[in-house]
Simulated assay, not measured.
Amino acid sequence: MSDTTEDSPMAASQNAHGLSHPALKGIALIAFDLDGTLIDSVPDLAHAIDLMLEDEGLSALGEARVRDFVGNGSRVLVERALEAHGRKIDDIDMVERTHHAFLAHYAADPSSRTRLYPGVRECLDGLCRAGVSLVLITNKPEAFIEPLLAHFSLAEHFVLALGGDSLSTCKPDPAPLLFAAERLGVSPNQALMVGDSRHDIAAGKAAGFRTLAVPYGYNHGDPISASQPDYLVESLDALVAVH
């Protein structure tokens, strides 16, 4: 597949809709992270973690503490919560039990406290109108993706959604990104990875995608600029604004 040029149908479509942000030049596929990029899910995740800890007779950690634990999938989130209480995560039976409990608590209510970040809907709507293919690549278990997208009426925006357990590896491994590009017949150099954490940027770079980051998400307290994304925007609606 050849590179998209300014005169191509896709570029013309982007220009017609005002999608002149330099990150989008020649881009046919955009992969979005979910937690910390499109949605702030920490309030619901923290609630489920605290219920899991209560099951174990442990004190709640609260939203602010759990916020720094998010980004590497549900099992790592649970392990970090247990480690915060001094529990040894080499106790496999304990980790399995608590992980299962966390998933059950989260499944019971994954969205009532979760919110879309400002500019997200405007961004996704604009990109879809411009004909850009959108995929979702998250480390969240696949079972939670559909309920969350349905809750926010976003399912129709994505042609493919991959969770942390959809393939044998997840971000920062580039495999999910390469899988999506191959599935949609798009060369990696015509794809953009959008995320909030170093794992998103590392996966994008390893896959040969262009990378764009937002600074408001979950990156374990570190500035996302340190991961050297190709682009950084304060809000995702910058991608569909007229420049």
Rank of each mutant, 00 (worst) to 15 (best):
G163M: 10
E79D: 13
E56Q: 14
A213H: 01
L177V: 07
V42L: 02
P110G: 03
L162T: 02
V95P: 04
A161H: 13
D68N: 13
P223G: 09
V186S: 01
L124Q: 07
L38G: 06
E122F: 01
L148H: 01
D44K: 00
A207C: 06
P118H: 12
N72C: 01
P22T: 11
F69M: 15
A203L: 02
L154F: 11
V66D: 10
L24S: 06
S197W: 03
T138H: 03
F158V: 13
A180E: 05
Y106W: 11
A11K: 01
H220N: 13
E83M: 13
M1Q: 10
D200W: 08
E96P: 00
G126N: 06
G126Q: 06
I89P: 00
S197Y: 05
H105K: 10
D200T: 00
R210H: 11
H243S: 14
L134G: 02
R87Y: 03
L177M: 10
E96H: 13
E182W: 01
G204S: 08
F209N: 02
A64V: 11
G204W: 07
G36K: 00
F32V: 05
R121Y: 08
P110T: 07
A31W: 09
R87I: 12
N72D: 15
L192T: 06
D68C: 02
R87G: 01
A11N: 03
L124G: 09
D90N: 13
H220L: 06
V214G: 00
R121H: 12
L178V: 04
E146Y: 06
L45G: 02
V194S: 01
M193S: 08
L29G: 08
N189E: 13
Q228C: 10
D3N: 11
V70T: 04
Y216S: 02
A180P: 00
C170S: 15
A161W: 12
A11C: 04
D222F: 06
E182Y: 02
R183M: 10
E142I: 03
R121W: 06
E146G: 06
H85S: 09
Y231L: 01
M1R: 13
D33V: 00
L124K: 06
N139E: 08
A64K: 15
S8C: 11
Y231D: 01
A101K: 12
A155H: 12
D237Q: 11
V76I: 15
L212P: 00
Q190C: 08
D222M: 12
G86D: 03
H21G: 08
A181W: 10
V78I: 07
A130Y: 05
D91Q: 11
I92T: 14
H157G: 02
R198D: 14
I92Q: 12
T138M: 07
E142Y: 04
H21D: 09
A206Y: 07
T5F: 13
V42D: 03
S168W: 05
R129L: 13
I201P: 01
A143V: 14
G73K: 02
A226K: 13
A48D: 09
F158W: 11
A143P: 00
R210F: 05
T114R: 03
R67N: 05
H85A: 08
G221T: 09
H157R: 15
D44T: 02
P22F: 10
T37I: 03
K140D: 04
I137N: 00
H100K: 15
S59N: 12
M10P: 03
R97G: 11
M52L: 10
L82N: 05
L38S: 07
D200Y: 03
H99I: 05
L184W: 12
E156I: 03
N15T: 14
